[in-house]
Design a protein around this nucleic acid. Sequence first.
DNA 1: ATTAATTTTTAGATTAATCTAAAAATTAAT
DNA 2: ATTAATTTTTAGATTAATCTAAAAATTAAT
Lengths: 227, 227
Amino acid sequence: MEKSLSLTEENYIKAIFQIRRTPESNVSTNSLANSLQTKPATVSDMIKRLSHKKLIFYEKYKGVTLSAAGSKQAIKIIRKHRLWEVFLVNHLNFKWDQVHEIAEQLEHIKSSELINRLDDFLGNPTTDPHGDPIPNANGQFQLGPSKLLSEMTSNENGIIVGVKNENSLLLQHLDKLNIHLGLNIKVKEVNDFDQSMQIKLADSSTLFLSEKIASQILIAKKLRSYL
Amino acid sequence: MEKSLSLTEENYIKAIFQIRRTPESNVSTNSLANSLQTKPATVSDMIKRLSHKKLIFYEKYKGVTLSAAGSKQAIKIIRKHRLWEVFLVNHLNFKWDQVHEIAEQLEHIKSSELINRLDDFLGNPTTDPHGDPIPNANGQFQLGPSKLLSEMTSNENGIIVGVKNENSLLLQHLDKLNIHLGLNIKVKEVNDFDQSMQIKLADSSTLFLSEKIASQILIAKKLRSYL
DNA sequence: ATTAATTTTTAGATTAATCTAAAAATTAAT
DNA sequence: ATTAATTTTTAGATTAATCTAAAAATTAAT
């Protein structure tokens, strides 16, 4: 089972995730102290504890790297932070520059049920109000902007990351076709006459979609997992 | 300025508020220990600190009572808890029996801006999904159920606690008439023909309202302040 | 009105998270 | 390749929140 982290631990994990350049690069004690507004001595102590909990890899004087478990936690926190920001801006009419501080608190609320329902309520947004990508429930980030399935041409492929408008009839229809977020698709053919499409799914089954539906589906080029 | 409480302090203050029978009744160390799932010795220590912070009145062996400052904090927390519960049930489709635990976390998010916007977003609900009254921004609880202004008869009075449906045209109209939550009103006369009403406001100005508008306004008999 | 039972407090420890000051290790500079 | 500068760690303290065990005070019972 996954042990639940303390607020402080969560903040350390998140800071490490955000400071590091690549998943393998080491994060220094001083940079952490700086980013967490605390003293290097405090960080030194804390990273020993995080290392003991297997959330990070740590060698004295060499800085730290996140373990798979640590990355997973960091991404979860970032997902929550960004989804809450969308809520604050889109539904509570906050300005995009007013939401960070509040989201810093909301990101620590524990309940994956809550966050997944919030994600659905918000319409599975792929970016937050600042344009930063929101990791999906599997912890994958979307790289680059998304476009509509209807804008794709033959042989292009991509991943379904969202729908343009939240129309419940559309959602029901997609459900029936077994089309869901995260699905890898490839455009086989676009009909010149009505722009309907034949697309191939990951299990190599094919599917026909009208332009009307294709113009509602958001596609991204690539997802990146940081685990 | 108001000092911000720690999570633990907030939980103590809330527990004291909820356990006590009347605002003046003393809450015992054991009952607090029981309700907070901790030991009497811990409570003994903690209440000394809360007393030092002037949030409670405390005499050794005599239990505690909330000060005005303490009550204010408690009510704020309860307001947040119940508003979040409304959000979870009405917008995220949680069942009313699933929301308590999550609201226990959300109630500690600090931002009155957030909570007031949430209140508006939810349509200024007067009760939570369990039927418990939601204190307004001034910390007042509504006693008893609310009814529609259109159901009132001559000489009845009450306080405006909400609107039935959130229609922005209606809200704009009410704004123009200077009708807002918390307003004390008295029905002067009901027109037999069209059920339009003449109502008197606190500043003894009078106002005519059509039945259409009167049937959208929620009135409660009394507000109670626990400060 | 004493004694017994119960409740509350005090004393002394523990853990997480933090600090300052000093020591140790690493990195940069001549 | 030493020395100087910088970074990191260790040592020793502090505070909030918690605990157990024992002492003290209050309340209930005869």
